[in-house]
Design a protein around this nucleic acid. Structure first.
Lengths: 242, 242
DNA sequence: TAGCCGCACTCACATATGTTATATGGCCTG
DNA sequence: CAGGCCATATAACATATGTGAGTGCGGCTA
């Protein structure tokens, strides 16, 4: 893979400088690229992977099934996201990961990650940071889920996805591709499909967004943030020494 | 602090072997111990700490306030938990941390953590692991919040706290001290105080728990796990090479 | 080109949980 | 030892969101 097009490097460089050596090391760490088709599992609950997966292209979801078949999505992953960097140390997958679209995935052996942690302290911190941001997003989702109305929660999610996608160069002006069904949004927000639809209607009626097919356009960024009580601190988009 | 009584070391040794050198390094890293009284903030949203805090004794909660004063607790912390290890790399606190009881806290300067990451790769991985477990707990909470009934969610939380407390030697037979009000439980589960009370009544009526004052006794561990759809994988309580 | 299937969308109705209010009891403080 | 405060407990009522059923459209596929 060419360094300049690796979306993980793009993502990390939004947060801190990487040396050329670090970039090369990171890029070379990925030994294999594979394709997973839409609606297939990338990883299953109970798996003990020996490599970690980086999403190069496509959308993926971490999910868990509870009794009576209900599903909760605990994370949405975009290009540049490490889907299961945590499996390097957690060992056993306690949830599955599903391809929401066709996904192009690069993998890095855990042995290589171990070597990086032995030899590249700063790069290690950057990978650690990457998982910490995932954690910060989880906390934010918990807050939104527990204490925001369904409409606010949806607005919040849209704001987040917009910024995360723009951080990896995937938005054009105010428009992003969001290939996620309303049922999947429901599983993400903890809502029924019917209510997701109601909430989207409301955001449309308020002229905050347009959402046709997979194309979501933000019509009023300021008010959308207000409705979703959104502030971006938790995404750590500032460049700092880490 | 004496190595043998440091609850962080106790916690990490449940997950992997630590060398004597690592234990000594870790223990020596903590330079200062302070007390925070009940209901005081240990850290505030917006803070940029230069050290990280380890909870030696007491209960603490990560929280965020949303508009109209509602509060969501995104994590409960017990003795042995690093309250804000993440601030080492995330830099800015995007949420506050509150002492639920009087807390005894040891702090380690971020400069020391940086030195550990430079010189002790395996110890670094163990600290990273520590934050990954926090993340796994967040995902589990998201699932419980989004897709379980209030009663199941409460049962789930009780199961988790029971195992986490027992991992640091804080349960006696089937009883644990849980100095958390019903209002605080509500903020944790995303429920109203009234409904927390209803749910606790139900768990009592079903003879799953007893809960008087701060003392919670588990009367039927098997059925409590069933009701809460609880499995402990996500807590990574197995000892493995990491 | 017909038929099917998935997805968005809507309606009527059901219910889990929230809200407001009040009572009770223990415990600290003056 | 009285008064006040905080937490638990309960009741009556309100509502946000879920459920089950059905329509229609657009895009595959045979």
């Amino acid at each position: 893979m060419a360094v300049m097009t690796n979306p993980l490097i793009l993502k990390l460089e939004r947060r801190d400088r990487l040396s050329d050596d670090e970039k090369k090391t990171l890029d070379n760490a990925f030994t294999r690229v594979r394709i997973v088709e839409s609606d297939e599992d990338i990883l299953r609950e109970g798996d003990r992977p020996t490599e970690s997966s980086l999403l190069l292209d496509g959308f993926a979801a971490r999910y868990k099934i509870v009794s009576n078949g209900r599903r909760q999505i605990s994370a949405l992953h975009l290009p540049g996201d490490f889907i299961d960097l945590h499996s390097f140390l957690l060992k056993t997958m306690d949830h599955g990961v599903l391809a929401l679209t066709t996904c192009r995935i690069a993998t890095v052996p855990h042995a290589t990650l171990e070597r990086i942690t032995d030899e590249f302290p700063h790069l290690t911190r950057m990978l650690w940071l990457n998982t910490l941001i995932d954690g910060a997003i989880h906390r934010e989702w918990l807050t939104a889920m527990g204490r925001l109305s369904a409409t606010a929660h949806m607005a919040h999610l849209i704001c987040e996805l917009y910024l995360r996608l723009s951080a990896v160069g995937r938005v054009e002006s105010d428009t992003m591709q969001l290939p996620v069904t309303q049922a999947e949004l429901g599983d993400t927000l903890g809502l029924s499909t019917v209510h997701v639809n109601r909430v989207l209607q409301e955001l449309r009626k308020e002229e905050l967004i347009r959402f046709q097919g997979d194309t979501l356009t933000i019509l009023d960024w300021e008010r959308l943030q207000e409705v979703g009580e959104f502030t971006s601190t938790y995404l750590s988009l500032r460049k700092e020494d880490r």
